[in-house]
């Protein structure tokens, strides 16, 4: 039984990270119907930025919590700039082109960013300092769940609440929903659609970067390739939950995270990634709209 809970909690941790990335996929898809394949790379760049900042601050002898905070903030801000630029450079010029062109552009950007980091940082795995300290109070349950894991789950929960609030109640959130439901009509009521799209990319990049920092600090090493596999997994999670739906992305991520954890724990860890993609295939065959997804309503 304890083993079961251990797996469940590790699954939720993993799912939380997927959720932070999947949100970016699903928000961008909701607004411009594009699978932003370069999204995983933004997460990877977030992790690298945090590593560089953390290394410098460690050399200067700062304390752990301050380093964690500053590294996260810098990584998030830097990734936001990446997300913004990515959209302006690779997608905006293709706004009226066939969807396939934008998709190819996305894959191109993904390869470009990977290789650019490869050249700058080599292909070696680099050790990432564990920035989240183990709290003593949590020692009694440490065999079930560690402090970093709790931090990851909590951070994700807070981000979800903030995002939900933003989407539901703020002016920009309403503009985002309106744009995703009918872009032209949103323009006709005065929404600056270009701005809404930029904001969507910026917000998605911010959550992805946060995920990058948290998981890098938890796993303890990163290289240029981490964005690819994490990005693809988060994409599977977004499709599983119903792409375009934000609660769907979170639910899909948690389900995928737990499914992977249980599969690893009870069956075999060698086939963990294979298992994730089997889920993708099964979903696409039997419920292409995802768990919470809605099929398009036709306009009358």
């Amino acid at each position: 039984m304890e083993y079961f809970f251990e797996l469940l909690l590790s699954g939720l941790t993993r799912g939380s990270i997927y959720a932070l990335i999947a949100l970016g996929y699903t928000m961008v898809y909701g607004i411009i119907q594009l699978i932003n394949f370069a999204h995983g790379e933004v997460y990877m760049i977030g992790a690298f930025t945090a590593l560089i900042v953390a290394s410098i601050l460690t050399m200067l002898g700062w304390n752990e919590i301050a380093i964690l905070f500053i590294a996260s903030v810098v990584a998030v801000v830097y990734s936001m700039a990446y997300g913004y630029t990515l959209e302006k450079v690779a997608y905006k010029p293709l706004r009226h082109a066939p969807r396939l062109s934008a998709l190819i552009s996305a894959i191109g950007m993904s390869l470009f960013l990977q290789n650019y980091v490869l050249l700058a940082q080599t292909s070696d795995f680099m050790p990432f300092p564990s920035l989240i300290p183990d709290l003593e109070i949590l020692e009694p349950i440490a065999h079930l769940i560690t402090t970093p894991e709790i931090a990851i789950i909590l951070t994700t929960a807070i981000v979800m609440v903030l995002l939900t609030f933003m989407i539901k109640f703020t002016r920009v959130g309403k503009a985002m929903r309106a744009t995703s439901q009918d872009r032209e009509m949103a323009m006709l009521v005065g929404v600056d659609v270009n701005r809404v799209i930029s904001i969507t990319f910026i917000v998605g990049s911010a959550t992805a970067a946060l995920g990058g920092v948290l998981i890098a600090s938890h796993v303890g090493q990163i290289n240029f390739y981490i964005g690819f596999i994490a990005g693809i997994k988060a994409f599977v999670a977004a499709v599983l939950g119903g792409i375009g739906s934000m609660p769907g992305a979170v639910l899909g991520s948690l389900v995928l995270g737990c499914a992977e954890a249980f599969f690893t724990g009870f069956v075999s860890s060698d086939y963990e990634d294979v298992f994730a993609f089997i889920i993708l295939v099964v979903i696409l065959i039997f419920r292409p709209a995802g768990i919470l997804g809605r099929s398009d309503i036709s306009k009358v």
């Binding site: 309403k174 439901q181 009509m185 005065g190």
Partner: peptide, 22 residues
């Protein structure tokens, strides 16, 4: 516009809010 183009998943009140967006 033609075909009304209501935001289908926004509530009636939210649709009216969108009208006053600016």
């Amino acid at each position: 516009p033609e075909g009304r183009r209501i935001f289908p998943f926004l509530t009636v009140a939210e649709n009216l809010d969108m009208g006053a967006f600016l």
